[in-house]
Design a protein around this nucleic acid. Structure first.
Lengths: 205, 205
DNA sequence: GCAAAAGTGTTCTCTGTACACCCATGT
DNA sequence: ACATGGGTGTACAGAGAACACTTTTGC
């Protein structure tokens, strides 16, 4: 009984996935999704959260069960997949392994162990759908952020440009974010208002 | 490693679930969802289809993985749940057991073993959502049916009345059904046109 | 002729989308 | 002054929701 975690982040306006190197057969030395076996008495959610914490040091982020596969390795094993969203500035990847894990752009993934490419596609699909009617993006952004930052995150996940005015109108009318009154002066241009998520926990609307 | 199947049907304009009596502890003699262990080398989908077939004799219907639970029995077990939609006129329940299985209206379920009531609620939620953007209802209806029959199925699942004109407009404009030209004379009133699903397999729009 | 279900259009509201210019700042 | 991203409103189209009467049949 194994869990498998698709850990997403957005970095440089790019949707990325955390991959590790397999050290065992089969698919030794292939890149793959992090995963592992349940500890005795451990729940699935707890195992997924633990895996996420082991790989990124991050806890208390958006984490959702995705699907359960029974044929990934071709022989009898069952793997419960999860997906997580982390702010890459908070994540601290293990660097002292022989093959350190890394963030890979979802647009140019290598061939992965087992059917992991399919799992990632499925996770992205679910994430895309979720974005439209929930506030899951909170898990990818710092406490205070500008509307442009938020829009870039949405664009990276959806893979297409969004209209600035329509995006702002919608975010504000849904009430998922609130203006803080603070502004961020950064660069040779007008400073931007800082917003915060009204709730930093999953909300579906 | 167990599977669990929420088998829905619509009978007498009423959404119903198939329940069986447990014969073993814990929760001996409680009603519960049908389920069982994976056979060696068996995939999850195959195990769910087999369970469905064992209970109803039905095969080749809509069957979808729902969620995987790790704490249903309170101690370590993992159960992958599925939901299925069957036409109750085709289903043949086992009648020769000491406690034969039965169809229970979802509005008045007894207290079930484990957390099965929660699983059913979740399944119904998913079914409701799916109804809106797929043709899953094909699995609940005979090959030819009237628009009123179809509407009653939708109403039973959604638990609320629908407007006849809007319903027809939508079904036809989505192209999920086609008129056959045949009519069904039945009762002291105008005969109804018979329709068929364009595809009798899952379509998402 | 009456009861019972089948069948049929129009109007309104709301939501999503397209689209272009001025504003505040640093250099 | 100019380059850079921040910030704003309006008009159109499509979808969903509300709503009532005529038609065809069996009895």
């Amino acid at each position: 009984m194994a869990v498998l975690v698709v850990i997403f982040t957005v970095e440089a306006d790019d949707l990325r996935v955390l991959l590790i190197r397999r050290s065992a057969e089969p698919f030794r030395d292939y890149w793959s999704l992090p995963g592992g076996l349940l500890a005795p008495e451990e729940s699935l959610d707890a195992a997924a959260a633990r895996k996420l914490q082991e790989e990124t040091g991050v806890t208390d982020v958006y984490l959702e069960q995705l699907y359960t596969f029974s044929d990934l390795d071709g022989r009898g094993s069952v793997a419960v997949s999860y997906f997580a969203l982390v702010n890459s500035r908070r994540a601290k990847l293990a660097r002292r392994r022989a093959w350190p894990p890394g963030w890979f752009s979802i647009e140019s993934l290598p061939g992965l162990a087992f059917e992991n490419n399919g799992v990632i596609d499925y996770a992205r699909e679910r994430l895309r759908a979720k974005l439209d009617y929930s506030n899951v993006a909170y898990s990818l952004l710092p406490e205070y952020f500008t509307l442009s930052q938020l829009q870039r995150v949405y664009e990276a996940i959806l893979g297409r440009p969004l209209d600035k005015r329509n995006f702002r109108k919608r975010m504000l009318s849904l009430g998922i974010i609130v203006a803080t009154g603070r502004v961020a002066a950064e660069g040779a241009h007008r400073p931007a208002q800082l917003y915060a998520f009204r709730e930093r926990k999953p909300i579906v609307f």
